[in-house]
Amino acid sequence: MTAVLAATDLRKSFGALKATDGVSLTLREGEIHAIIGPNGAGKSTLIAQLCGSLAPDAGTVSFLGCNVTAQPVAARARMGLARTFQTSALAMEDTVLQNALLGALGASGKPWHFFAPVARDRGLKGRAEAALDAVGLADLRDVRTADLSHGQRRQLEVAVALTLEPKAFVMDEPMAGLGQEGSAQLTSFLADLKRTAPILLVEHDMDAVFALADRISVLVYGRIIATGTVDEIRRDAAVREAYLGDEA
């Protein structure tokens, strides 16, 4: 099966620190590929290179069969790469619906309308409302984003990604700070979502990772020390030593 998103021998150093040290990985159609690793393993740096906000020193990123290593964030997003941020990146002054509309607007690729009110734009609105419906925020559409709870902001992050109708998701710790019930809800949501588009999931919540992931890659000191199914990773001695400890 061909990879939707692939990194080949990515390298990125900050001075003497090798934040990404020869990382290769693939995200295949229909799967959730989780990346786990201790703090400082280089997960965020890796995501930044996959999404285009950071240029690698060496190696390539390809998306949908195209080499996108030199493409900026916006170009990759227009191709269908949707990301969610670890700390919510939402327009706090705007309403929930406006944030979702922004995603739909980005997906349309046509921001150069200066007169027609966006609120009466049926195409955009339909897309935005469908995404809010999917994550269960439809009732809060007119609430200011700043007034949302932490968990609701995480849901909105996912909704904005949904409006892009992407070919792949990159999610940076979507469960962060959600609490048990919230995590469980999002877990079942993501389990369905992977049928829409594959998900590269960076996550600390091990219950969620083990419940969701088809494959897991373990990142330690900028290197992937193991990739495999949940069972393979649980059994891997090197992983147990580096990361999982005895609890696994």
Partner: peptide, 14 residues
């Protein structure tokens, strides 16, 4: 939105 969260605006392709 570009004033408030430029990263988000880039991430939706603008």
């Amino acid at each position: 939105a570009a004033r408030q969260v430029p990263d988000r605006v880039r991430a939706v392709g603008l």
